[in-house]
Design a protein around this nucleic acid. Structure first.
Length: 222
DNA sequence: ACATTAAGTGATT
DNA sequence: AATCACTTAATGT
């Protein structure tokens, strides 16, 4: 490669190959390398605000991103997480015409994100069959995840939602000690601190978690 | 020692 | 399950 500007570092390139070599043809991977831009983020960086215009679609290389809905009072509700190879369905649905984000995205851990200009989306959709498959598949996966989230919201009580939330968080961070306060949890689940404190107490009595100040240890799950 | 912030609790809606 | 009002406990300055 003789280009003066190489937006890719070796690690990202390898990761991309690792993940997609059997999914994408080499020409497509080359295209991605040519037009994609990798950015690294610290934990807690805001990738997307509601109302922000989206010009690129994100593809997670390392780390994880949480996607949430937020109302005008700033109350938030967690929708789902993105991990390696995941892309955001909301972006996909908007890629045909320039539009604004309806969600907020924040990195859950330090992360490397690959950005692909939305113009390339359509181009690749017709040019690469594997890309088309990938996009449709991603859309499908997200759709199902959303349905799960709605189901959880509609039919499960707070205690179950809280427990699911803690489990997901442990899965995503691969860490059984979660550095989070009751207040933060309450916000993500769109509940109140008092309610979470009471339910956490309950979970603790059931032996599922051990509580400390500023963090919880999730004992057993699955 | 004091202020600040996280977590616990009883009562009320 | 949410909110209020208050207490208790941990932590930082």
């Amino acid at each position: 490669m003789t280009t003066t500007f190489t937006p890719f570092n070796v690690s990202c390139y390898n990761k991309l190959h690792e993940k997609f070599q059997f999914l994408f043809e080499p020409e497509l991977i080359n295209e991605i390398c040519k037009t994609g831009m990798v950015k690294t983020y610290k934990e807690g960086s805001v990738l997307m605000e509601i109302g922000q215009t989206l010009s690129h679609m994100p593809l997670v290389i390392t780390g994880s991103v949480k996607v949430m809905k937020e109302d005008k009072e700033g109350n938030e509700l967690l929708l789902y997480y993105l991990e390696l190879g995941d892309t955001c369905a909301v972006t996909l649905s908007c890629c045909t015409k320039p539009s604004k984000s309806t969600i907020k995205a924040i990195t859950e851990s330090d992360a490397e994100i690959l950005f692909i200009p939305v113009e390339k989306m359509e181009e690749w959709m017709v040019k690469f069959k594997t890309w088309r498959g990938f996009v449709l598949d991603s859309y499908n996966v997200r759709m199902n995840e959303m349905l799960d989230a709605i189901d959880n919201l509609a039919f499960n009580n707070m205690e179950e939602r809280l427990y699911k939330y803690l489990r997901d968080k442990v899965m995503i961070t691969k860490e059984s000690k979660l550095h989070i306060t009751h207040f933060q949890i309450a916000n993500e689940l769109h509940s109140s601190r008092v309610v979470i404190s009471r339910l956490m107490k309950k979970l603790e009595n059931e032996g599922l978690v051990i509580q400390h100040r500023n963090y919880v240890e999730v004992k057993e799950f699955m």
